[in-house]
Design a protein around this nucleic acid. Structure first.
Ligand SMILES: [Mn+2]
Ligand SMILES: [Mn+2]
Ligand SMILES: [Mn+2]
Ligand SMILES: [Mn+2]
Lengths: 219, 219
DNA sequence: TAAATTATTTAGATTTGTCTAAAAATAATT
DNA sequence: AATTATTTTTAGACAAATCTAAATAATTTA
């Protein structure tokens, strides 16, 4: 099962999109891949022929068994390389995504497994996302979207919703990193902004958009 | 100057071929790329348009200034990654070439320079070939082809002519590695085989083909 | 439920990198 | 120098991945 880089990127995008919703629509996929719906349809047919997808025209798509396996392998590579870049090469956690986007397509399985061992079998990447092991298993900690957490609950930031440079810039400015512990002080119904308190720091307010981009776990 | 993977592979092949001879012929290039002469001609036109080559139809090709710069960058990446695989991930030196063939196309310059620092700015790759630095400079030790060395001269193996699995298998069997010191005992005119003596070991005979694949320096 | 809107697919074109077969240029032999 | 052999280029085709524009299906609205 040799996939091209383009095919791998589609598989990975479907994997991420179907976490949230069940079937992934052509338009969703086109938006996420920065491409046109017509191109998506072409690729869906191709990947269906390779029996990686379950695809019914007009009904959206989801990964089949083999597709899921491939997706986990790509995600594993992506996150291991991100860990390598931050842990060994002193990259900032906000500058590794683009590079990992290329490195994830290096095919050697031996390389990935040796890299994993070299890094000490890390369980999470620099953004708090779990790293699948050799068999595609990953720890699934109960994660909550910050917007859904109720007042006063003490939580710890464990991942972010995207790796966009804009988000990471804002997080840096607000002094929020993976591991930051905080409490929701108050929620404003008007704009759904959220007042939060980070330990030993003055209370600040963050927007609905930012709160939705933060995933936390109970401490 | 963004090059595709195919373009980079051509640039690198031309670089290696023109070390030996001046102008590189279409057929040489086709053989080395495992492709057809017609495909080579197409690519030469394309790369000439990007002003990376000096190419005169029917007269062969050589790298222009910009092409040489690109080639050195690719070679640098290839050899640094090979060093990484052997030194950090415990790969054998005879199994890194294929993987580096993919890794050399990762584009981030920051990645390469940080990798270089992480590895301690190595000067040679696992096959004894010099690694260009950030500015494209590399140490050039006087290397000789073993077949050209005269009797009795004590030399040290410092690089091999190719990375083919077949060659590396043979070297392993003969117990020859980078750094092995040896003397030529005798040359046979009939088949150009060479009798060599490795320190503290019984004298052995190697074929013309193998002797031509070994590069040595005076000790 | 009929019309309007939105989502998706098809049709046809383009770019990249490759191929085979045929033509043209160069080099080697008589 | 003429012929033969080799090398190289051109011509035309193809698969992969993309696009735009047009057609069709599904959904929403009135
Ligand atoms: Mn990618
Ligand atoms: Mn990540
Ligand atoms: Mn390569
Ligand atoms: Mn090498």
């Amino acid at each position: 099962m040799n996939l091209t880089i383009a095919e791998e990127n589609y598989i990975k995008a479907i994997f991420h999109l179907q976490q949230a919703e069940g079937n992934v629509s052509t338009n969703q996929l086109a938006a996420s891949m920065h491409t046109k719906p017509a191109s998506v349809t072409d690729m869906l047919k191709k990947l269906t022929n390779k029996s990686l997808l379950e695809y019914e025209p007009y009904q959206g798509v989801r990964l089949g068994k083999e597709g899921k396996k491939q997706a986990l392998s790509i995600v594993r590579k992506h996150r291991l390389w991100e860990f390598f870049l931050v842990d060994k090469l002193q990259f900032g956690w906000d500058e590794v995504h683009e590079v990992a986007e290329e490195l994830e397509h290096i095919s050697s399985k031996k390389l990935v497994d040796k890299l994993d061992a070299f890094l000490g079998f890390p369980k999470f990447d620099p953004h708090g996302d779990p790293i699948p092991d050799m068999n595609g298993n990953m720890v699934s900690i109960r994660q909550f979207n910050l917007i859904d957490v109720k007042q006063k609950t003490l939580v710890e930031v464990c991942s972010v919703g995207s790796q966009s440079a804009e988000l990471l810039e804002l997080l840096r400015h607000k002094n929020i990193v993976i591991g930051t512990q905080l409490q929701i002080v108050r929620k404003f119904d008007f704009d759904h902004s959220v007042e939060i308190n980070i330990e030993n720091k003055p209370t600040i307010t963050i927007s609905q958009q930012l709160a939705q981009a933060l995933f936390v776990k109970l401490v």
